[in-house]
Design a protein around this nucleic acid. Structure first.
Lengths: 354, 354
DNA sequence: TTGAAAGCGCTAACAT
DNA sequence: ATGTTAGCGCTTTCAA
């Protein structure tokens, strides 16, 4: 069944034209007589010819391909992002090559492969890289943007959101609710997002004279977060509030609290997440969280990439988008002045938006 | 910063060898003196040379790329699958190009693009195609496997699971629990999975003399399933059991039942899903469902693809994997003979496994 | 073991 | 508007 591949030469022969006429017939903006194109297209149809885009890429030096590097798709935040970015690129006539970074030193192993593939741009979803690696790729002159991870190097574009303010809001808000045993469920240690959210959170607490009551690591994943929650609440006087570095862990925490500890959320424990994944809004968890503007993040990142690819804007940018508190039912309502409290929240929100 | 691309010729010049020596130095199984390779590699390092894999593909006629076509990543079932398949291909030294099928006539729009890219195989995740389309691609001699969709054409490999038996089990089990107003929440109309699950379900009901009490369409997505549930339960004598064509919709149904209708699951309504996505096992829903063997499905599909690519096995196959009932807490326990009932379940399970 | 030469399928000058 | 020609960067005979 495997038929020998048919080339433009074969089509040319059948159509009785030159090979370049065939080439021209398949490019949108070519100067070719309508009659010729008709002939060519008909011959092509008969032979089942399709232009070989590899050959095309070789000569035009443009693969029209973007590499997307992800770490895991467990968190819907990233699968949503991937789908959105993918559709965007597709619509721009680009192909998308997907790479997964292995857990150990993820970046190094894929980067060589990516460079060889001659992709025109690279989009990294939450991949941690050090400045040496950043410099290496920047030096290759290939447009690069990293989403949701800060790298300490200017020559690379970054888009993320205001993790620090988000963390700050969480700490401040939880304490304003009257909680005093407020714990932190951390994400991936040393990831920039975790560092920033944690720092903001601690500061938000410190500014009202509260200490972080306990802290455990959940690595941004559901299973680890369940274990971390168990450790956090094994105590005889467990926390009465919990800020989780992402929604997936917050949901894990709520599930564990309710079903293993028999604790009520928010009555016994208030829980706040980060991201605002679709599930956060499902009534089963109704999670109070900090919304990252996914849509906007993808838009900014893809536009940035395209601008660099098309040489419209060579400069790298570091974009920080505002996060928005989404008040739902995993945090208790302020006991005394519910009205006043809402206003306060709203203020805090605006200041976090800047 | 954009440095001109360095070619093997440049490296050859610097290393004082021929261009073909450079080429050989970068291929694993080449006959080249260790000394020469050293020189070449050093020169390459100095210049920052990376072999251009597009040029390589052109001459070797192998792109080492697989296309994966998906419809949406909203359902974790598919994002999990994508990630697993992706890692597998990567580990085999293949690249993965990701395509999303637009909702309207998804297949036709991407297929031409895929063929032009000279991919060596195509993996379709739940993409519906008709036999004419199947024949067209099969005719191109490019290895093709479709997961979770049946196409009425032999020349294409398919791997799916036993949807009919799964549906049958659901109908049978629900009725065995004593339910008599059993409804069906359908997936994408005309998708083969929905057709098969529905047919099995209806038969399972019919075999014990029960009719399907009501039916609505949820299109395999959360939001639509919420609406469908509302329609289903707006009745004055609503259903007392619900079989949903996938887990995502089952979860939507449970959420809607509990939080909008104030109904208890499983006390007022038993719910069964299909897929066994990770969330199904979370205690918040603890969903009784039919497990599709994702891991195995991916393994079979990828192996099939690889076998065809490597010409080990040219034949196309239609693989149907067994589904496994996962008894959790979204279905009520049998009132009278819980022990006996479990055995019955276990029997049914085995028969569904075949 | 190495180098010279041919050419993968296409695009892009250039000439007609 | 069309054909001729020269490569894109590499792999792969074929001689040496």
């Amino acid at each position: 069944m495997k038929r020998k591949s048919v080339t433009s030469r074969d089509v040319a022969k059948l159509a009785g034209v030159s090979q370049s006429a065939v080439s021209r017939s398949f490019s949108a903006d070519a100067k070719v007589a309508e009659k010729t194109r008709k002939k060519v297209l008909e011959a092509a149809r008969q032979l089942g010819y399709r232009p070989n885009s590899i050959a095309r890429s070789l000569i035009t030096r443009s693969s029209r391909t973007i590499a997307v590097v992800a770490y895991s798709l467990e968190n819907p935040f990233y699968s949503v992002m991937l789908e959105k970015a993918s559709r965007y690129f597709q619509q721009q006539g680009y192909h998308l090559q997907l790479f997964f970074a292995p857990s150990d030193n993820g970046f190094a192993t894929v980067i060589d492969d990516i460079i060889r593939s001659q992709v025109e741009g690279v989009l990294m979803l939450a991949i941690t890289m050090d400045s040496a690696q950043a410099e290496e790729v920047a030096d290759f002159g290939i447009p690069f943007v990293v989403i949701n991870r800060t790298v300490n190097f200017d020559g690379i574009s970054q888009v993320g959101s205001d993790n620090y303010s988000g963390g700050y809001w969480a700490g401040h808000y939880l304490s304003s609710l009257g909680h005093r045993r407020i714990a932190y469920l951390a994400g991936l240690p040393d990831s920039s997002t975790d560092l920033q959210r944690q720092a903001g959170f601690l500061k938000g607490l410190a500014d009202v004279g509260v200490d972080c009551y306990a802290m455990e690591v959940g690595n941004y994943c559901y299973a680890d977060a369940c274990h971390a929650t168990r450790r956090l609440f094994a105590n005889s006087t467990p926390p009465d509030a919990l800020f989780c570095a992402n929604d997936l862990m917050a949901i894990a925490a709520i599930d564990t609290l309710r079903h293993e500890f028999g604790l009520a959320v928010p009555d016994d424990v208030s829980v706040i997440g980060f991201d605002d994944i679709p599930m956060a809004d499902w009534p089963s968890h109704s999670l109070t969280t900090l919304k990252q503007p996914v849509e906007l993040m993808v838009l900014k990142a893809t536009e940035l990439l395209m601008a660099q690819i098309n040489q419209i804007d060579i400069n790298t940018e570091h974009i920080m988008l505002p996060v928005t508190p989404m008040l739902r039912n995993s945090t208790r309502r302020s006991a005394r002045h519910p009205k006043e409290n809402l206003e306060e929240v709203s203020d805090t929100h605006h200041s976090s938006v800047r």
